[in-house]
């Protein structure tokens, strides 16, 4: 490191460099959403936001993400419990399997679901004659969300399970609690932070999901069009303002989740 009369030149230089690099990569794209979206005044922004299709897309995104989150948190909790408490043959294989969806391209995930449940899919072809059509419905979106966010909650909860002292549960058992009471009063409260952050991560990821959703939902406006699909559709139609309004909402929403995760860290991690 070169020091110029006791002044470390590398320090401000590297900090400045870092900021300069992030400017076109992160800061400016985010800023442009807000600059563009509000350039024609707040009234037009509000009108774009309250268009029925836009409201529907936002609601659908929230609802499907919510149910996918509920499922994945409960499943992640269960999977983490089983995989950190019991040792059995194939345990590591299961852990890898659960984590696999992280590495699978979302378009591939959507495509895979179509090949299984679609009208001509492996299972779907038997369901279709019964009038059961899973794909191109809200259910398909939930299924796709579950698939792509599968390992998130599990990944946050399992390490907490692993490091949790067994003596807490043993103490509870010797005091006279049943397994269920121990889980409810002792284990679960200690997982509070992990469950909340796992749920927020899953939800944030599910709300933004595009690649798999566009394949399985059919992208039907007012029926199976989620918020990210709405942005894509409106942009294609040349309705930049409509797309922009929803983009602002989704960006703000992700800021909100991120700040909860960031600033509530103390509350979430209290031990």
């Amino acid at each position: 490191m070169r020091h110029v009369r006791g002044f470390d030149i590398v320090r401000p230089l590297s900090i400045g460099m870092l900021m300069f690099m992030m400017l076109p990569l992160v800061f400016l794209p985010l800023a442009s959403i807000f600059i563009f979206g509000t350039s024609k005044g707040l009234t037009s922004f509000w009108n774009a936001l309250t268009a029925p299709e836009a409201v529907f897309a936002l609601k659908l995104s929230m609802a499907t993400s919510f149910w996918a989150t509920v499922f994945n948190v409960v499943f992640g909790l269960f999977a983490a419990y089983v995989l950190s408490r019991y040792n059995f043959l194939g345990r590591n294989a299961l852990i890898v399997m659960i984590s696999l969806p992280t590495a699978i391209p979302t378009a591939v995930a959507g495509f895979a679901l179509l090949l299984l449940w679609g009208p001509y899919g492996i299972l779907g072809r038997f369901l279709a004659p019964q009038g059961i059509q899973l794909m191109f419905t809200a259910g398909a979106i939930i299924l796709a969300n579950i698939f792509v966010t599968f390992p998130l909650a599990f990944g946050v909860i399992k390490p907490v399970f692993d490091t949790m002292s067994r003596s807490l549960e043993e103490a509870s058992a010797t005091i006279g609690a049943s397994r269920w009471q121990t889980f409810w009063y002792v284990t679960l409260p200690s997982l509070r932070g992990a469950i909340v952050s796992g749920a927020l991560l899953t939800f944030a990821r599910a709300v933004g999901e595009f690649g798999s959703t566009i394949l399985v939902s059919g992208n039907l406006a007012g029926r199976t069009q989620t918020a990210p699909l709405y942005i894509f559709a409106k942009f294609n139609e040349g309705q930049i303002e409509a797309a922009n309004a929803i983009a602002i909402v989704l960006a703000l929403f992700s800021f909100l989740i991120f700040s909860v995760l960031f600033f509530a860290r103390d509350w979430l991690d209290v031990e």
Binding site: S167, L168, A171, Y185, P189
Partner: peptide, 10 residues
């Protein structure tokens, strides 16, 4: 227990 094993959230 040596670690006391008090329930941290109570």
């Amino acid at each position: 227990f040596q670690s006391y094993a008090l329930f941290p959230r109570m």
